[in-house]
């Protein structure tokens, strides 16, 4: 079994934390993993993506081939659309529905969201607003991971919960609790 995942968003939105949690869970589960990250210049407010590959078999390429990704996890709706050409038939996209507008020519947001929603197998949530509403303002990315958990299959939600506890442990119990709460919010909303 394999899962090829594209994680994307805008530099600074916290996609690498999502990757770290999935990486921890995959390592604990004894899965093979490759995760190509973007460092350097594009982290300054540009588009960023990470190719995350999980498998029970050896993995060769660090990059995902077009037409073969199983899942897009996106912190931003236009960034989700940027990578749809990589999706395999029947694949899923989970995305924030909140545009991050830091460029002058950002498309009309209604029309952009309409395009995203008219595609197959797309789930969106206003994760930043939800995070604020539930007093976990810094854990929007874990809401998104919760939404994605329903489609990961190769890793159980419980394995991801344990990974969240392990990854955030050094930041203290309050932060672990906030991230777990956010994760469950996303997971339950997606069900």
């Amino acid at each position: 079994m394999k899962k090829d995942i594209i994680l994307c968003g805008v530099g600074g939105q916290g996609i690498l934390s999502i990757a770290t949690v999935i990486g921890e869970a995959a390592t604990q589960a004894g899965l093979q993993l490759k995760q190509a990250e973007v460092h350097g210049m594009s982290q300054r407010g540009g588009d960023v993506q990470s190719n995350l590959r999980l498998s029970t078999e050896p993995i060769y390429s660090d990059l995902i081939a077009r037409g073969s990704a199983d899942l897009i996890i996106s912190m931003e709706p236009m960034e989700a659309l940027r990578y749809v050409g990589y999706l395999a038939p029947g694949a899923w996209t989970v995305s924030s529905s909140e545009p991050f507008v830091n460029i002058p020519n950002y498309p009309d947001t209604d029309s952009l969201l309409a395009e995203l929603k008219e595609r197959q197998n797309v789930e969106t949530l206003p994760i930043e607003a939800l995070a604020r509403e539930h007093q976990v303002p810094k854990s929007a990315n874990m809401i998104l991971l919760g939404m994605a958990a329903a489609h990961l299959e190769i890793l159980s939600p419980e394995a991801l919960r344990q990974a969240i506890s392990a990854v955030f442990a050094r930041k203290g119990e309050a932060i672990v609790a906030a991230n777990l709460k956010a994760f469950d919010l996303g997971l339950n909303a997606a069900k």
């Binding site: 540009g46 588009d47 037409g67 659309l81 749809v84 050409g85 999706l87 460029i103 498309p107 995203l116």
Partner: peptide, 18 residues
Amino acid sequence: REGAAEARQVVGRPPALC
């Protein structure tokens, strides 16, 4: 491989000073 159709409304997002 047959990939999904590309999106219509995506524009570039270059990096910028913080």
